[in-house]
Design a protein around this nucleic acid. Structure first.
Lengths: 243, 243
DNA sequence: CGTTAAGTTGAAGCGTCTCAAGATTGGTGG
DNA sequence: CCACCAATCTTGAGACGCTTCAACTTAACG
């Protein structure tokens, strides 16, 4: 078990009651297949906020479904800069590789306290052979993750800072909405300026300037673990047209 | 059949003689399984240089293995900037999606004349059911493509221009070496400055300045469809330490 | 209420972009 | 073989976006 984690004592969350199971990797399926699938989930971990889930180079022989909380996946460069690759939200799959002895090419850090559903090599194998449709689901998830990475690469490579920030926030807002978060209200937002800056490839100082400007224009306010979206139309216009 | 392609008349290249089959998606396998697999390849296309293979939004009901030539995969932003996502080399898999009616999120353009081996929905399905180990191989390929995208995102987001260029060239050189290209000699290199600039997120003008500087230092020379690597150690030091 | 982490602001400098003119290369036809 | 053309690459000058460093302000938390 990785550093800083603790095994959640039973009773564990049941899949049938899991709020994110429709997003998670072992949807789709019949309601009554879930009991069997749940039995193949090894255990659940709880990791406190601001703790590593895994480091680059680790090769944990397990994969995780994020059941609750936020996780920041990132890569460190040799110049000590950090690129945030993804902000994982409930339902997202972490540390998946086709061979579990392949080392991970990136690290992951909890933004909040999180609950992880754990699957080891054996349980994955059993799941895939008992429920062959899950193989297809895994392909879809991998494919969606890759598409998200290409999107991020495109705007980090080609858009100016103002636009990158707008696109990053809109991506997140969209994914939160899918998860039932009401973004017309101020929401709890466990990313600080440094996290956002590292995701879009600018410095926190510059992010602060642009972010103050957006706040002044009544578009968004993201500070101190709160996000308030005041004018989503203008945010979209910023993201798409840069104005 | 997509625009600008033509169907290559038989005799097609045989898999047993294919120079890149060890890299391609239907390795691994027994030598004698290749005949059967080849029978499931629908056909081969030949596409001239500088022609589209597919556009963003297309949903061709087929996937391609690049048998020979180079292909540039990219995404256009609404501000008319282009991000080059990948330079596909022989053996690489193009347009793969878990559901072939999903539209593609990026476009592809030939850099040289290319030969594509074509697989349609039916043939993929037959291949995967006759050779179940190919499913695992597809996971590996998808996973490697995603890892490459994360790498690119990291240096485009976090490294200065000089370092990005060095990393991009080293990535390419490494992948060419795997394919048996001898980079101690000048090689044919069908990317112009604009292609490289769009891959690393700078302007062609700035690329030209840095590239002249590197040439002056006797590190690399990439112009006019030729690449000469003069000092790979210094190129690596540039990529890793920025000096 | 004090302490610490997080965000803000100013000033100066550097890296990258833009625009525009000029040079080099490879290809084509005379 | 040479002249010409188009595409590609190069170079300069000025402007702009983003970074750096450092001081200051604000919010969160016990």
């Amino acid at each position: 078990m990785p550093n800083g984690h603790r095994i959640k004592p039973p009773p564990h969350t049941h899949c049938t009651e899991c709020p994110v199971r429709k997003l998670a990797w072992f949807e789709p399926g019949e309601e009554d297949a879930l009991d069997r699938r749940e039995a193949l989930r090894t255990t659940q971990y709880i990791v406190p906020a601001k703790q590593p889930v895994y480091q680059e180079g680790d090769a944990p022989r397990e994969v995780y479904t994020l059941q609750s909380g936020w996780v920041i996946q990132y890569k460190m460069l040799e110049n000590a800069h950090r690129q945030v690759l993804n902000v994982a939200l409930p339902g997202d799959l972490l540390a998946f590789r086709p061979n579990l002895d392949t080392p991970l090419d990136h690290a992951a850090l909890t933004a909040t306290e999180v609950t992880l559903c754990v699957f080891n090599e054996h349980s994955i194998h059993r799941l895939l052979s008992e429920f062959p449709e899950l193989t297809h689901r895994l392909f879809e998830i991998q494919s969606a993750q890759a598409a998200q990475c290409r999107r991020r690469l495109s705007y980090v490579g080609q858009a100016p800072a103002r636009q990158r920030i707008a696109m990053f926030l809109l991506d997140l807002i969209e994914r939160l909405s899918v998860r039932g978060v009401d973004i017309s209200q101020p929401i709890s937002f466990p990313l600080n300026h440094e996290d956002i800056a590292d995701a879009v490839g600018i410095t926190p100082v510059h992010l602060s300037r642009i972010s103050s400007e957006m706040r002044g224009l009544g578009i968004v306010d993201c500070r101190y673990n709160k996000l308030t979206v005041r004018d989503i139309a203008r945010l979209q216009s910023l993201a798409h047209a840069g104005i």
